[in-house]
Computed example of a mutant assay.
Amino acid sequence: MTAPMDVTGSQTEATPESVLDGAGGAKAIQGRSLGQIAWMRLKRDKVALAGGLIVVVLILVAVFAPLIVGAFGQDPTQFNSDLIDSSTMAPKGGTGISAQHLFGLEPVNGRDIFSRVVYGARISLLIAFLATLLSVIIGTLLGVTAGYFGGLVDSIISKAMDVFLAFPLLVFAIALAGIVPDTAFGLAGDTLRVALLVFIIGFFNWPYVGRIIRGQTLSLREREFVDAARSLGARGPYIIFREMLPNLVAPILIYATLLIPTNVLFEAALSFLGVGVRPPTPTWGGMLSDAVRFYTMPHFMFFPGMAIFITVLAFNLFGDGLRDALDPKAR
């Protein structure tokens, strides 16, 4: 390395000390973890960030539903018969929308729609999250076991996946939810209905996660770090939980965010068919079921329908952005 020419036009060699001083003054290059790289990609996707922000808002609404209803609404089970026209059974003024009732009133009984939509978020999101968690746990454990061990184990688990995927889930859910009594397994009321729906939706949806994790495991088990762990004497459980599962976090997280909106729709469908959480506990699907009889009052159907639409859209947008951030080669 040479120093710049001096005023006399001569050129002198730079001393080793000056080279080291210059190198020491430069800013060191810092490495980035996979999480930091994924976050940088996700930040560039404004649509996914908007979906994630809406998801956070929905979760906060569900968690703080009593506070929100206390400030902007009223008890979701409270009747307001004095605000209902006795001749048409419709809210006075057509919808009943006012400063006290932001989304209007239900026909016949006059319950506040805003309060019921807010409280409905608690049931819908709780069932969707718990059912997704159950599906992910079962599907991940069976999928990684089938993919790693192969042979007879893989054959048995794969055939079980095929059986569950061919099962008429909606018909079974209607039948099972309809025959379970009001008290069973030490549970009763809404707690029993929520637990039943979580079991039905979560347990019978695990093959969708299992097939994806099995395919990822089949490729991971041939990688060098797995061979190195085997050569050092590591057993199957250690390799599965300490070597493979950390490398499966990305597909698990991606599929979970895409499975939640599906479970929201499934819970709404069961509530719409009358086999979900029973009245007077508000659910979005149950509100839609009640609104069918009053098709001349579109506000009754509009707000719970929009709640379902926004929730599903937000989770799908965020899930797509997360998939692109964690697996850019899939774009």
Score class of each variant (00 low, 15 high):
residue 27 K to W: 07
residue 28 A to I: 15
residue 30 Q to K: 14
residue 31 G to I: 09
residue 32 R to K: 14
residue 34 L to C: 06
residue 34 L to Y: 14
residue 35 G to W: 13
residue 40 M to Y: 12
residue 41 R to Q: 10
residue 42 L to W: 09
residue 42 L to V: 04
residue 46 K to N: 11
residue 50 A to L: 15
residue 51 G to F: 06
residue 54 I to K: 03
residue 56 V to K: 02
residue 57 V to D: 05
residue 64 F to M: 03
residue 66 P to C: 06
residue 67 L to Y: 12
residue 67 L to T: 10
residue 68 I to P: 02
residue 68 I to A: 07
residue 69 V to G: 06
residue 75 D to V: 09
residue 80 N to G: 03
residue 84 I to V: 04
residue 92 K to G: 04
residue 93 G to C: 01
residue 94 G to Y: 05
residue 96 G to V: 00
residue 97 I to K: 09
residue 98 S to P: 07
residue 101 H to M: 04
residue 103 F to L: 13
residue 106 E to L: 08
residue 108 V to G: 01
residue 109 N to V: 09
residue 110 G to P: 10
residue 113 I to W: 05
residue 114 F to T: 05
residue 115 S to T: 08
residue 117 V to D: 00
residue 119 Y to P: 01
residue 121 A to E: 07
residue 124 S to V: 05
residue 126 L to N: 15
residue 127 I to H: 05
residue 127 I to L: 07
residue 129 F to G: 09
residue 131 A to V: 08
residue 132 T to K: 07
residue 133 L to P: 01
residue 135 S to Y: 02
residue 139 G to A: 00
residue 139 G to D: 00
residue 140 T to L: 12
residue 147 G to I: 08
residue 150 G to S: 04
residue 151 G to S: 14
residue 154 D to P: 08
residue 155 S to T: 15
residue 155 S to E: 13
residue 156 I to W: 10
residue 162 D to A: 11
residue 162 D to R: 07
residue 163 V to L: 14
residue 164 F to I: 12
residue 165 L to R: 08
residue 167 F to M: 14
residue 168 P to S: 11
